[in-house]
Structure formats: structure tokens, C-alpha cells
């Protein structure tokens, strides 16, 4: 089952690469503008041992991870506070729904003038973009905590805070983790886009932007994009694996219910 899924995935990747190669080789697309897939992959392989490029990747990952971590802490805390009283939850709901669809990229100018260092500004944008999916998931998860579980602990004399820590938080954790996983992908897009748009020469986005200017090196540009995509894939895979491990009880419960 697992092996056949991996095998099919590999077939899909090979097929996509073959199509990309053919489109260029047959002259359907200008080879000057879009280099063939084999060239892009060779460049990507070269870049994987290029210390300067790896430093750029490191810079991107640092900003992304910092923003994601801050967003997780802030969103879970805010979720707990907003869930503590029904009126507070209702009052906050509209504010959240208005702020949430604002694309983080629309706030780039604001971030540039508000923060002295570029990486601070980028972290702030990642933080902004990542907060919403985590906050929304936290709010819904806390609202749906089983009242019987809460009553059970209360009947054994546990107070409000103890019930929050021992029931509400653990039972919400799988949904919060899903929010974090969604936020991780969103955050990666935001950090690369910010680097790309806001100028500067650092990060994966900075590399992409540099390889596009002055005549352009589309093979390097696309190779950089391949790495950005792989980074996203790895992040998603790691978070999914962590969720499966930590929340085995949750998966077992939902499987038993269906």
C-alpha cells in the first residue's frame, strides 16, 4: 500500500519531468526562455553542494521557522483567551474574518517601514500569514471539546484551569497541529514571495530575483524554484509524520468512529 503509493508518486514525477523535457526539445517552447528539465535538474544538483546557495536557503528557513513558531504560540494563546468566554469569542469572530483574507503580501510596504531589519519585517509577515489558520483551527477545536470529558474532570474536583490544561488543550492539539501544517506551507510561500518582491539579495527568493535580472539565467531561476518546492514537500512530510506519531490516539478514535 505504502510502497505502491511511493512508486506511483515517483512515476508521476518522472512523467512530469519527461513532459517538461519534451515540450522544450520538440521546439514547442523556446529553449532560450525555458531550459529543458534535464538542464534545470543538473543546475539544481550543482546548487545542492553550493555553500553560498545553501546559506541563502538557511536564511529563508530561519525567517520562516521563526515566524511560524511565534505565530503558533500567539495563535494558541489568543485562541485560549477568546474561547474563555462566549461573548469574547463572538466579538472577535468578525475581526478575525475581516483580517484573515488580507494577503500578507499586501502588507509588505507596511512591514518595510515598520521594521528596521529586513529579516524582522519578513518574520512579521510570515507571523501574520501563519497566525490565521492556526487561530481558526484552535477556536473550532476548543469549541468542540467534548463536554462529557470536561464534566468528568470537574466532577473529580478539578478547577477551570486544570480542565483547560488536562482536557481542552490535549483534545484540541491534533487540530492545532493541522493548522500549523497548513500555516507552514502558507508561511513558506510568504517568505519566498517577500524576498522576491521586496528586493535584497538574500534568501531563496532573493536568489530567484537575482537570477532573473540582467539578461537572466532561467536555468538557475527554475533550479531555485525546484528547491523551494522540495523544501515545502519536506516540511509537509515532517509535520505529517510528527502528527501521526503524536496523535495516534486521535487517528485511532476517528477510524473507530467511521
Amino acid at each position: 500500500m505504502r510502497h505502491s503509493r511511493l512508486a506511483l508518486g515517483a512515476v508521476g514525477v518522472a512523467g512530469a519531468v519527461a513532459v517538461a523535457e519534451l515540450v522544450v526539445r520538440t521546439g514547442l517552447v523556446d529553449a532560450e526562455a525555458v531550459p529543458p528539465a534535464s538542464t534545470v535538474l543538473r543546475r539544481a544538483a550543482e546548487m545542492s553542494v553550493d555553500g553560498a546557495y545553501l546559506a541563502q536557503v538557511g536564511q529563508t528557513v530561519r525567517v520562516w521557522f521563526g515566524g511560524l513558531l511565534l505565530a503558533t504560540a500567539a495563535a494558541v494563546l489568543l485562541g485560549l483567551v477568546l474561547s474563555s468566554a462566549p461573548w469574547l469569542n463572538r466579538a472577535a469572530r468578525l475581526v478575525v474574518e475581516v483580517l484573515r483574507p488580507i494577503p500578507a503580501l499586501a502588507l509588505i510596504p507596511l512591514a518595510l517601514v515598520s521594521f528596521s531589519s529586513q529579516s524582522q519585517g519578513r518574520t512579521a509577515l510570515v507571523f501574520y500569514a501563519c497566525t490565521w489558520p492556526i487561530l481558526i483551527n484552535t477556536l473550532y477545536a476548543l469549541r468542540d471539546v467534548d463536554p462529557v470529558a470536561k464534566e468528568t474532570l470537574r466532577s473529580f474536583g478539578f478547577g477551570k484551569v486544570a480542565v483547560l490544561l488536562r482536557v481542552s488543550l490535549p483534545s484540541s492539539a491534533p487540530f492545532v497541529a493541522t493548522g500549523v501544517r497548513i500555516a507552514a506551507s502558507v508561511g513558506l510561500v510568504v517568505v519566498v514571495s517577500t524576498e522576491l518582491i521586496a528586493g535584497g539579495a538574500d534568501g531563496v527568493g532573493g536568489f530567484l530575483s537575482q537570477s532573473q535580472t540582467g539578461g537572466g539565467q532561467p536555468d538557475y531561476m527554475l533550479a531555485g524554484a525546484v528547491w523551494a518546492g522540495l523544501l515545502g514537500l519536506v516540511v509537509n512530510a515532517v509535520l505529517t509524520a510528527l502528527e501521526r506519531r503524536a496523535f495516534r490516539w486521535h487517528l485511532a478514535g476517528t477510524e473507530a468512529a467511521t
Binding site: 467534548d146 462529557v148 470529558a149 468528568t152 488536562r166 482536557v167 490535549p170 483534545s171 490516539w249 486521535h250 485511532a252 478514535g253
Partner: peptide
């Protein structure tokens, strides 16, 4: 019982 016991 299934809701009263903590699955984690």
C-alpha cells in the same frame, strides 16, 4: 464511557 475517558 468513550467520551468520559481521555484517549491520549
Amino acid at each position: 464511557y468513550s467520551r468520559s475517558l481521555l484517549p491520549w
